[in-house]
Design a binder for these strands. Structure first.
Length: 836
DNA sequence: ATAGGGTTAG
């Protein structure tokens, strides 16, 4: 029998008026059932109740409990409403412990209380709100009389535990049992629909809302906007939003969030602006969503204004808003600003730290990232999945297997390796550290493989040119019901390109289209780069044009890629046209484009034009210097190459191995012995760089070309590498020029012992003989090769010039370079015959 | 009722 006049948790929304409302109501208080009730008792009871109520209202829960204990010790009868009041206070304070004490007292007082509908409902609500999942559900299932409020409590609980399906099942069940959902449960149901993206169910709830007239409730309307937003149906979200008579800031925020989370960042920013125009004060939610949208668009001015609005509005930088600001600055590469915000934040949680760590990793500042991890530990915060995936990415990008293994071990110890994102990072780390075997092992031991995990391994095989293995994986993923997406296809294509199987790559490209998978910018760029690097320059340019015809706009990477195909005089006009396109689309000053342009003009022999682009490049980075230096080196202008190298040093940019190789080879080809040696010494003493075999090779060739054969040989002995075929070959080449026949024979013998099956060595030896006019030896070497069944590397064949046989990088006529070579020789008036 | 971080392809 219900004995308490109101049992509405809804009234909790009007907490401050509740007790007065009760005391002024005319409803009877049913404590006549207690013995010896008198007028006096009633007054005293009322004053106890009033005191407990006020204490509860002020959150003085312990004092309220003390009064309750006092009543109990005086054997003063306690009515259900007092327990209810204290329980409600426990709900507010999320005080599970005290609530449990009250529950115990209720049980102690016997069946009247324990089986009181009001108290039972309150207990369900109490346990539900305190997140005691099992207790709340058990009590609920044992309720004799369920009502809208207890249903609402368990549905809300299931929602908070992310059990959205269960929540909706309960929502349906309550209706089947004849209860009509009120406007307090509906938002929970809608939230579950949004989380599950169950648009149909959500629309059903919307229908119900309209039917019973809840659509005027801002809570319900905001939830509808959120639900449609989460389901990606922004048009319907907008309709609800536009139809609202009165909008509160949450409705505005839901609309902004909806657009932002669906990648419609411009519209999110638009709604934010409308909101300000209407004079609605943005909250932290509005600003953090606005900042996310700005970050996604790279909208630097908007985002900075958002930060300013937050500051001016006096909004405290809590974890979430602070993280959004940091995210904005770091996504725009403004890492110093992100650091400033981070330092000024008063509280920092694991997300804030993770953001800084991943920002550093993305900027390649591995040391700083690891230092952040260290500081984070000092603040007693534990690494989570996100921290580890950033650390593993750092290890992958710097090929640091030691850090990678440490990260992997940490994951195993802390059970993080079952997270698919972490698993993908581990697989990628091992692959990028050259341990494809470990990558495969981790992949196999991961139970829940998602498409990204499959794609990670696929990309790993592709990267090392194992197209066949990639293809196997591609079939296997389909057998395991993971349909490949465009990224999978891209890796598959890349796998064959890396193995120089261009026809297979092109075949896959058309296959994917006939299967209805649309190539994206990356697919096209992969193909363009592959064609350009394998001698199919013209086709690369054609593919670039086809890409534009298919409506895909090139970005800086695809432009750089196609420019790398325009490196001969025939394709230069295309290159110039693309240069124009880049300028028209404001991409001409992008560093990667400038670099490609410098490279293109330099390779085509237009050095002054290359220099012009180089000089007009504002913030120069190492690659553009390297392109310029190698351009001069290629055309024998060692002096100019050295000048650019000096410029680079003055700019305070640290050269890399490629810089040294180009500048050393320029010196070597032009006999600039002093300059070359000086640079070689600088590599070690000034740049603290370990010279590679290539660097030694350049100096060996520099020394031997200038006649210092003894010095060259001494250097070979002194270097910390076993001499490779290239270095011996370069020495061999100069032996003939200096008539060092005996040394040459020695080197040739060494070369064949070193790699008896490398056809390149036979070519080098034969070239050396050709240089000294020993055509008989050239023929002998060719016969030796035939005897051993060795084939020349693709693109190299014997060319007969007059009576003389030369090994030549000319091919059998099918190689794309053939045409070029044909033209070059024709210019020299040389007629030629190719032989296989 | 609304808000923040990590993984794959050029």
């Amino acid at each position: 029998m219900a004995c308490f006049p109101f049992t509405t948790p809804q009234l909790s929304q009007f907490r401050s008026t509740k007790t007065t409302k009760f005391l002024s109501s005319n409803e009877p208080i049913h404590f006549t059932e207690f013995n010896g009730t008198t007028r006096n008792h009633q007054t005293l009871y009322k004053s106890y109740f009033h005191s407990i109520s006020s204490l509860c209202k002020d959150g003085q829960i312990q004092q309220a409990v003390d009064l309750l204990t006092e009543m109990d010790s005086k054997n003063f009868p306690v009515g259900p409403e007092i327990y209810g009041e204290i329980l409600q206070c426990c709900v507010y304070e999320r005080d599970l412990f005290t609530g449990q004490q009250i529950h115990a007292q209720v049980l102690k007082n016997g069946a009247f209380f324990a089986r009181n509908e009001y108290i039972e409902t309150k207990l369900v609500i109490f346990y539900a709100k305190c997140g005691a999942f099992d207790v709340a559900n058990n009590l609920f299932s044992r309720l004799r009389v369920k009502n809208v409020f207890s249903w609402a409590a368990v549905i809300g609980l299931k929602c908070r535990f992310g059990l959205n399906e269960e929540a909706l099942m309960a929502f349906s069940e309550m209706q089947e049992n004849g209860f009509f959902p009120d406007n307090f449960v509906v938002p929970n149901a809608l939230k579950a629909c949004g989380a599950l993206q169950w648009l149909g169910y959500g629309k059903g709830v919307h229908g119900y809302v309209v039917k019973v007239g809840f659509d005027g409730c801002v809570f319900v309307a905001s939830s509808l906007i959120d639900m449609y937003g989460k389901c990606g149906v922004l048009e319907d979200a907008r309709k609800v939003f536009d139809g609202m008579v009165e909008r509160n800031v949450i409705a505005w925020n839901s609309m902004i969030v909806g657009y932002m989370q669906n990648g419609r960042n411009e519209e999110a920013i638009g709604v934010f602006c409308d909101m300000r125009m209407e004079g609605v004060e943005p909250t932290r939610v509005s600003i953090s969503s606005f900042l996310s949208a700005s970050a996604n668009l790279g909208a630097i001015d908007e985002g900075k204004q958002g930060h300013a609005i937050a500051v001016l509005g006096g909004l405290e930088l809590d974890n979430i808003l602070g993280s959004s600001v940091i995210n904005f600055y770091s996504k725009l590469g403004l890492i110093e600003d992100a650091e400033l915000v981070f330092v000024r934040m008063l509280v920092r949680d694991v997300v804030t730290w993770n953001l800084m760590i991943s920002s550093y990793v993305q900027c390649g500042l591995i040391e700083k990232a690891l230092n952040m991890c260290h500081l984070m530990r000092l603040e007693n915060l534990r690494f989570d999945c996100v921290t580890l995936s950033s650390i593993l990415t750092a290890a992958a990008n710097s090929s640091s297997i030691e850090i990678g293994k440490e990260g992997h071990c940490y994951c195993i110890r802390n059970n993080l390796q079952s997270d698919v994102v972490v698993a993908s990072s581990i697989v990628d780390m091992y692959a990028k550290c050259g341990r494809i075997d470990c990558a495969r092992q981790v992949f196999s031991s991961t139970t829940n493989k998602d498409i990204i995990l499959w794609n990670t391994l696929l990309a790993s095989y592709a990267d090392i040119g194992h197209g066949g293995e990639a293809l196997k994986l591609f079939y296997q993923m389909q057998l395991e019901s993971v349909p490949p997406n465009v990224t999978s296809w891209n890796s598959l294509i890349l796998g064959f390109i890396r193995n120089h199987q261009l026809n297979e790559a092109k075949e896959l490209f058309s296959q994917m289209q006939s299967l209805g998978v649309h190539p994206n910018l990356i697919t096209w760029t992969t193909l363009i780069t592959g064609l350009a690097h394998n001698g199919f320059q013209d086709e690369a340019v054609q593919i670039f044009q086809k890409m534009q015809e298919s409506g895909i706009k090139p970005n800086t990477i695809s432009i750089s890629s196609v420019l790398s195909a325009c490196t001969n005089v025939t394709s230069l006009p295309h290159g110039r046209a693309i240069h124009g396109y880049a300028i028209r689309h404001d991409l001409g000053s992008q560093i990667s484009v400038s670099t490609a342009l410098v490279d293109m003009y330099a390779k085509c022999g237009y050095l002054s034009q290359a220099k012009r682009v180089f000089d007009n490049t504002l913030s120069k980075e190492l690659p553009v210097y390297n392109a310029m230096i190698s351009g001069y080196a290629l055309h024998g202008q060692a002096g100019e190459a050295l000048a650019v190298y000096k410029h680079l040093e003055e700019a305070g940019i640290e050269p890399d191995g490629i810089t040294f190789t180009t500048v050393l080879s320029a010196c070597s080809h032009n006999g600039l012995i002093n300059e070359g040696l000086e640079i070689f010494f600088d590599i070690v003493s000034k740049h603290h760089f370990r010279p590679s075999m290539e660097h030694y090779g350049c100096v060996v060739s520099l020394l031997s070309r200038s006649g210092n054969l003894d010095e060259a040989i001494r250097l070979i002995h002194a270097m910390p590498y076993e001499p490779d075929a290239y270095i011996i070959g370069s020495l061999l080449a100069t032996c003939r020029e200096h008539n060092e026949i005996e040394l040459g024979e020695h080197l040739a013998k060494y070369l064949l012992e070193l790699e008896p099956d490398n056809s390149g060595n036979y070519v080098a030896i034969s070239n050396a003989y050709a240089a000294s006019g020993r055509w008989d030896k050239v023929i002998k070497i060719r016969d030796l090769m035939k005897e051993k069944g060795l084939k020349k590397s693709p693109g190299c064949s014997w060319i007969q010039i007059g009576e003389k046989l030369h090994p030549f990088f000319a091919g059998d006529g099918s190689h794309p370079k053939t045409k070029q070579i044909h033209a070059t020789l024709a210019l020299l008036g040389i007629e030629m015959n190719f032989s296989a």
